[in-house]
Design a protein around this nucleic acid. Structure first.
Lengths: 142, 142
DNA sequence: TTAGATGCAAAGAATTTGCTCACAA
DNA sequence: TTGTGAGCAAATTCTTTGCATCTAA
């Protein structure tokens, strides 16, 4: 999914507004600001990362939290919370995995491998399988 | 690794004391209490879970945090924080994956499959690969 | 003896919540 | 209008830290 960022944000925003209407949720300027900011990024921002941007549009921290929650509930983004640090949000909802750099904490998307992981042997219904790779990214390896 | 719990705790504790000696760290009664408690469990307890037990042996919360940190540093347990909520600790240091129940939050060990996961295509050094399965466990499915 | 651990309480960081006012539909 | 969202600040939850004291080696 290497779309032109402008287009990605525009289509994502339209999708968001459509889903809000479906769910009878008002489309507020604050929610629009949060959605646009999240969609414009591929670096899995934290709430504070998003807030640093949208506060300039007059959005409060609490509203940033609530808007992100709404966005996840509508299926336009996912939480990715790996190491007990702050929660991060990923607007890429297609199947993929993550690489976490142990040095700088950056999270990168990793292409999904269809040749997949066998479901576990235990007695449970698996809905989702995700793989986390940890190591050192190119920027931190010198 | 389906050892008799008694034996598992005993050998783990001996291992812990050996590593403390190597690292020139004193073996205190508090550390022993935390190690024994952690080793006795397979349910990936949180700090509070451990503290609820060791406080009766006079161990403070801060010390529980510090002891768990030490135990991880010595390689006798791992942090597993897939949930984004409280950190959990896993005394099983052999290669394995986890299943997370989305209903009750329980974490179960899943046997390691030697076959599957190809390293990602991107430009990074991968040190560790972990798979997280999410879904509903047997107890929550009725 | 002495480096390092412990307890306590205060400090921090991340996140949630109560309540009143404002606004999208 | 009217149900929901937004802002603000206080409250929670989880975790770390400073400091005086204690203890394993």
């Amino acid at each position: 999914m290497s779309l032109d960022p402008h287009l990605r944000v525009a289509t994502g925003l339209a999708e968001f507004e459509a889903r809000c209407e479906q769910a009878h949720l008002p489309v507020t300027s604050q929610r629009r600001a949060v959605v646009e900011t999240l969609l414009s990024r591929t670096d899995h921002p934290t709430v504070d990362d998003i807030y640093a941007v949208v506060r300039e549009r007059g959005v409060s921290l609490a509203t940033t939290y609530r808007a992100l929650e709404t966005i996840v509930a509508l299926g336009l983004a996912r939480r990715v919370a790996h190491t007990g640090s702050a929660v991060r949000f990923d607007p890429n909802t297609s199947a993929h995995h993550h690489f976490l750099c142990d040095a700088c904490g950056a999270i990168a998307d990793v292409a999904w491998k269809p040749s997949p992981i066998e479901p576990p042997a235990g007695d449970f219904d698996v809905h989702e399988t995700s793989v986390l790779y940890r190591g050192i990214c190119a920027d931190c390896r010198f």
